[in-house]
Design a protein around this nucleic acid. Sequence first.
DNA 1: CGCGACGTTGATTTGCCTCAACGATTGTGG
DNA 2: CCACAATCGTTGAGGCAAATCAACGTCGCG
Lengths: 195, 195
Amino acid sequence: MISIAREIFDHNQLKLTNDEVSFIEARYKKVYFQKGTIVLDVNQQIDYQYYVHDGCLRTYLISDSGKEHTIQFAIKGWWISDYIGYFLDQKSILCIECLEDAILYKISKEKAEEIFDNIPKTERFIRHKLERSFASFQKRILANLSLPAKKRYLNFIHDYPTIEKSVKNYHIASYLGITTESLSRIRKEIAHRIS
Amino acid sequence: MISIAREIFDHNQLKLTNDEVSFIEARYKKVYFQKGTIVLDVNQQIDYQYYVHDGCLRTYLISDSGKEHTIQFAIKGWWISDYIGYFLDQKSILCIECLEDAILYKISKEKAEEIFDNIPKTERFIRHKLERSFASFQKRILANLSLPAKKRYLNFIHDYPTIEKSVKNYHIASYLGITTESLSRIRKEIAHRIS
DNA sequence: CGCGACGTTGATTTGCCTCAACGATTGTGG
DNA sequence: CCACAATCGTTGAGGCAAATCAACGTCGCG
């Protein structure tokens, strides 16, 4: 059983000492959530970001018209929070919902900075993670702008097969920016093409 | 005249010493581009990211159907590159176009890491910048998913009045994910409402 | 079994696109 | 400084992808 600090900061990359592991683990807090739990609701103070050790979650926004729009899914090894509120120091505008029983490790901004201060290589590690996430989100914007719904769906199930199996179709639809009816028709079309 | 290192790493925040300024400035290279220049074309090695000291640029993708989709604009104080390729170590898929005569400072990944290694506070500074950019891009995804074109346009001119004045309407349209004709009709509608 | 959650299907509407033509503005050479 | 072309923006007619509205299967579960 690998330590959670070594899991988060990739054992093979960072080679943390036992002291460093202790320092890190004192600052993370393990939390459990049941399927269906709203981990964070709108208009709250956002105190934490969450590392997903197990389970599946999503962040979504409810628009004025009452519709849900999924921004992000997260499975084992991913991070999740309302990053708009978290990084811009505002109240939450997103909800975090637990889609499958989950084990998370939460950390506050202050404690995260403590880790960066004391173990500088962790800051580099996280910066590189952030850079790659940033690039992925740009890719998503690109896809939304330039690809039809069917292509976006095919890309999604190709890129995230694990997530596809863990979430409902209407979650995927709201991630792709279409209605569940449209997704249903797209799926039908694809099924026919294969046979 | 403030030094470029102090401009990039916010004079008021980082309080760089003269030695640090020299170290940084030895690693940035000043480059000029004329309006209309393609700073980066598709399928290239991406060696640099660019700090915009003056001027206006954009990154865009040309889709299979031949249409342009603008990912990002950049004006004074912003950074620009094909971050998808840059951060994910791939060939470029975006073009960088100079929309107004520009003065840029370019830096390679290696030299940037040298600065982070030698002046750790710069790494923190850039990480915080990256976090805020990340949040902004999430916001954009949200807007694309949940708002109609008219609202997206109103938000754009509200959030980026400076950019609006520097770029053509068809650039804005391609940023919003609509055609220039649609934008024209939206603008007409707004003009009528005000009067 | 019966209920609620999820997914599908059909009919109709709508926001935006496409295609085509025509003004307006800008830039350039005579 | 004007003439002309090129670029950019606007307008109209028609079409299409996806949304909306409504009804109906299907699956899992108390």
